[in-house]
């Protein structure tokens, strides 16, 4: 914010190379240090806030006992079982909505209603329908993910350049070729944005569904350690879930650069 002509110390600091990374890093380190001092010295009850040293120890214990790995695998499987079909169904539904006015008019309001409603409210019902096991979690993931993917596919396809479609048609392309060669690649960046939204919703959905009722999984672990009042373990598990989310978004970005390289250059 270069409003003042003379540069203050703050301006000079914030304009240093990589300022965002190292100022952010220093801020996080200071926060962790303060947390460690406050928690380890019981200035605030450490069973309520824990502290970084204890959390690191808990992470080591959970990982080395294999408890974390086994439960993470369960959650991952449920996530994959719901998310993979959601990608397919979302893109097909989105294409259907974009290419058929009738389908869009009839069913898009239902979809938008589903999108606005808090997904977690459906979980108790899904448990009644699909049981306390993995299926209800996969269905939760599916429902969380399919709606943003479908909505974004519709938007993306409708914003595809009309001229590309006309060019292909002029050269005698079939409807199928037009969809594969022009419409889907054109819509790719927006579909990818939909996938990013979907990942966030699906992760929260699967964890909350496991917390609500389940027999295994990371959400189940959170619930177990929660009721036992173990703050350190909860921080480990929350950190793991966030890490998984970051990893997914990072992978998606790399995939996007591969699938839509013209966009990365822009």
């Amino acid at each position: 914010m270069a409003i003042n002509a003379s540069k203050s110390l703050g301006d000079r600091l914030s304009e240093a190379p990589n300022a965002r990374t190292w100022i952010g890093g220093v801020s996080v380190v200071l926060f962790l240090a303060a947390w460690q001092v406050i928690g380890a010295n019981e200035i605030v009850r450490s069973d309520l806030i824990s502290y970084p040293g204890e959390i690191a120890a808990a992470a080591y214990d959970l990982a080395s006992s294999g408890e974390l790995g086994a439960n993470a695998l369960t959650t991952l499987r449920e996530f994959a079982q719901g998310f993979a079909p959601a990608i397919l169904a979302g893109i097909l539904l989105g294409l259907g909505f974009a290419l058929s006015r009738l389908a869009r008019s009839l069913f898009e309001p239902l979809f938008v209603a589903m999108y606005t409603a808090p997904l977690i409210a459906f979980v108790p019902l899904l448990v009644v329908w699909f049981g306390v096991g993995s299926t209800s979690k996969a269905v939760t993931t599916f429902l969380a993910a399919v709606v943003p993917i479908a909505i974004n596919t519709t938007t993306g396809v409708r914003e595809t350049q009309e001229s590309w479609v006309r060019a292909l048609r002029a050269f005698g392309a079939t409807r199928g070729q037009i969809i594969v060669k022009a419409i889907l690649p054109g819509a790719m960046p927006i579909i990818m944005a939909g996938l990013r939204l979907a990942i966030g919703r699906a992760i929260v959905g699967v964890i909350a569904a496991e917390m609500y009722v389940s027999t295994s999984g990371v959400g189940r672990m959170i619930q177990t350690y929660s009721t036992a009042g173990r703050a350190a373990e909860i921080f480990v598990l929350v950190g793991e879930v966030s890490g998984f989310g970051f990893m997914c978004v990072w992978l998606l970005r790399r995939l996007e650069n591969r699938l839509a390289p013209w966009r990365a250059r822009a």
Binding site: I234, L237, V238, G245
Partner: peptide, 11 residues
């Protein structure tokens, strides 16, 4: 923004 905050509900 990115973490499942509801996990902290017991705390």
């Amino acid at each position: 923004y990115a973490s499942p905050l509801i996990a902290f509900y017991p705390l």
